[in-house]
Amino acid sequence: MAIQALRLIVKYFTRQASLSELDKLSEKMKDPHTREEFENYAKINFIIDYNIKKFNTAKSREQLLAFIDREKQASRLRRAVHLMKYAAVLLLFCGGAYLVYEGFYEKTSGSITTTTIEVSNIKPGSDKAILTLQDGSHVDLTTENITTATLKNNGKTLSYNDRYADDTTPVYNYITIPRGGQFQIKLSDGTRVWLNSETKLKYPEAFIKGETRSVELLYGEAYFDVAPASRHTGTKFRVIHPSQEIEVLGTEFNVRAYRDESHIATTLVAGKVAISTGDIHYILSPNEKASLDLRDHKMDISVTDVSDEISWKKGIFSFTGMSLEAIAKVLNRWYDIQIIFTNPELRNVKFNGMISKKENIEEILNLIVSTNSINAYEIKNKHVYIK
């Protein structure tokens, strides 16, 4: 394969290709050797590997080229926006993100869409948290590096030294993750917890030897990698929520319990957990998800793709069959914004895709626009209007 074609493919994946270079790549894709090399590069990438499981590669290639042709005809009048949409299509198949709308391939480009953006200071989320001590005082873990005899904070992770409580009454602290934040904490027993945006966890500075190790997820989403009971005289680990309890011996699992959602989702990655709520008791197996409906307190157990459920921990938004309304809630928390639908019907549009949490909100919105599922969006301060 010619060196020029290889360079074009590399630029394609790294989002550096210009409009003319994308035109050249479209032509070179007619060559079977170029297509083969394209597919080899695509398979290396984790996200496109996920996409290949869902879609036929050859078919996706043809749909991509057809979409490029349509966009070239419709977007010549707005070259800058055109390049942004090309980047979105590029990511759609081969880069840091892809997003597929059910009607994407059936729709053709209509009138040119427009967006209105006032000076936008919307940034992706970052590591930030507030520590509330038992005496009620607050510590901003984002700005204060702390090292004491019992703990250490480096601005990303709050770590407690391995130890047991000296007293029979544990000292409880709270760690709160605001909208637009994420953080990690290592508890005194060695358990590691990843905390997502808009989450609050209550925990003891040190557990009491021989007693059940308990923490309380007041709201939000957390991923637990629990230190084995064998390291702690056989004591179990318990995660308490006002609507359910999870008991484990040593395992990895994710709990999503946001205040604006009607379900609590518990997904088991490895090991074994027992979930209890009222008279309901269930033992989850790996790759199972328990969904508790807070309206009628019924629990549904299903097999799930664990990678989708815990992708946030790895810096990726994963949307599988998710409505635009549900996606908006995720974006609201991470970017600390408020998405408003001017057309209520858009709330129910379904998507499949993966997007890096490092993307700017405008890039994600342009990606959604490129699927032809919405016409445009408007940003005013921290309000985003979907049209």
Rank of each mutant, 00 (worst) to 15 (best):
9 I>Y: 00
10 V>P: 11
12 Y>H: 13
18 S>K: 10
22 L>T: 04
26 S>Q: 09
30 K>N: 15
39 E>S: 08
44 I>T: 13
46 F>A: 11
52 I>K: 08
54 K>A: 12
70 R>W: 04
78 R>H: 11
89 V>Q: 09
98 Y>C: 05
113 T>K: 00
115 T>K: 04
118 E>D: 15
120 S>K: 02
124 P>N: 14
125 G>E: 07
142 T>F: 01
150 T>L: 07
153 N>W: 03
159 S>G: 09
162 D>Y: 06
165 A>E: 14
175 I>S: 04
176 T>R: 00
184 Q>S: 07
188 S>T: 02
188 S>I: 04
188 S>C: 06
192 R>T: 15
192 R>E: 15
193 V>D: 07
193 V>K: 01
196 N>C: 09
197 S>D: 07
200 K>Y: 08
204 P>Q: 02
236 K>M: 15
236 K>H: 14
239 V>K: 01
241 H>W: 08
245 E>R: 02
249 L>R: 06
250 G>Q: 07
251 T>M: 06
253 F>Y: 07
254 N>V: 02
255 V>S: 08
256 R>I: 09
259 R>K: 13
266 T>C: 06
269 V>L: 04
278 G>S: 04
279 D>N: 07
292 L>N: 08
299 M>Y: 09
301 I>C: 05
302 S>A: 12
305 D>A: 03
306 V>I: 08
308 D>A: 04
309 E>N: 01
311 S>G: 06
321 G>P: 03
326 A>Q: 13
330 V>W: 00
331 L>T: 08
336 D>L: 00
344 P>E: 12
349 V>Y: 00
351 F>C: 01
353 G>W: 00
368 I>W: 00
369 V>H: 00
372 N>W: 01
376 A>H: 07
381 N>H: 08
385 Y>W: 07
